[in-house]
Design a protein around this nucleic acid. Structure first.
Lengths: 118, 118
DNA sequence: CGGCATCCTCATCGATACTG
DNA sequence: CAGTATCGATGAGGATGCCG
C-alpha cells in the first residue's frame, strides 16, 4: 500500500498545501498569461482579491522561488512581478488542471443541478 | 490581458477551490495508488486525517463524481471507495504536480534553510 | 502605488461522544 | 466499521487605516 504521506517532511504535502492556498494557482496562471505585471494589474485581473491577500500570497510565492519581485526606485513606486524559471516549470502542471476543469466542468455542473431538488 | 476569473461561474476557480481543500488531492492519489479501499484503509494510509474530515472530503469528491462509494449490506458494515472514470482522468494532472514537487522540493528546502537566519 | 499593521469575522478542522 | 452530531479552537482571509 503506497502512501506519500505523513512522513517527517513530505514534499508532496508541502507543495500541495502551498498551492492549495486560495489564490496561489490563480496568481500563477495570471502571471503566466500576462507576463510581467504590476501589483495593481494583478489585483485588477483577479478582481476579488484583497490587497492584503495579494501581498501575502505573492510573498509566499516569492519565498518558494516561483515569482520574481522587482522594485523600481521611482516616485510613485513601481513594483513588477513575473514568474521565475521555476514558476514557469510549474505552469504546465497547473494548465493541466485548468484544461481538465474546462473539459469536465460542464457535466459536473449538470449533475449538480440534478441534485438540487433533494 | 487574459483572465479566467471572477466571472459569474468560473469552472477553473470552481475546480481549483475544490481540489484546494486540505485533503482532496491526497485522497485521490491514495485511491489511485491502492485502487479500491475501505474507509478505514484510507484513513490509515493518510495517517493524520480525522474521521470527520475523511467523511466530509469523500462526500465532496463523490458529489463531483470523482469517487465511487459502495456500501455492502453486511454486519459489521463495509464500505469501499474507488475512483470513478472521471476521477481517473484527473490523476495524471495531479501526478504532474506530485512529480514537480518531488523534483523541485529539495532545492526549495535548501533555500528555506538559507533564510532561517534572518 | 504598493505596501504593512491591526482588528475582527467566519469557515475549516480536530476532539469527543454517540449510533446503526 | 463507518459513520453522524456537537462543540470549541485555530487560522485564513476581509476591512480599515497609516506610511514611504
Amino acid at each position: 500500500m503506497q502512501n506519500f504521506h505523513h512522513n517527517a517532511v513530505c514534499p508532496v504535502r508541502d507543495i500541495l498545501s502551498h498551492l492549495s492556498s486560495k489564490w496561489a494557482m490563480l496568481i500563477l496562471i495570471t502571471l503566466d498569461a500576462n507576463q510581467t505585471m504590476r501589483f495593481s494589474d494583478i489585483q485588477k485581473s483577479i478582481g476579488d482579491i484583497s490587497q492584503r491577500m495579494l501581498t501575502v500570497s505573492l510573498r509566499a510565492l516569492e519565498a518558494d522561488g516561483l515569482v520574481n519581485r522587482k522594485v523600481y526606485p521611482e516616485v510613485p513606486p513601481r513594483v513588477e512581478y513575473c514568474l521565475t524559471e521555476r514558476g514557469d516549470s510549474l505552469i504546465p502542471c497547473i494548465q493541466g488542471l485548468v484544461n481538465w476543469a474546462l473539459t469536465h466542468m460542464p457535466q459536473i455542473l449538470e449533475e449538480r443541478k440534478g441534485r438540487e431538488f433533494l
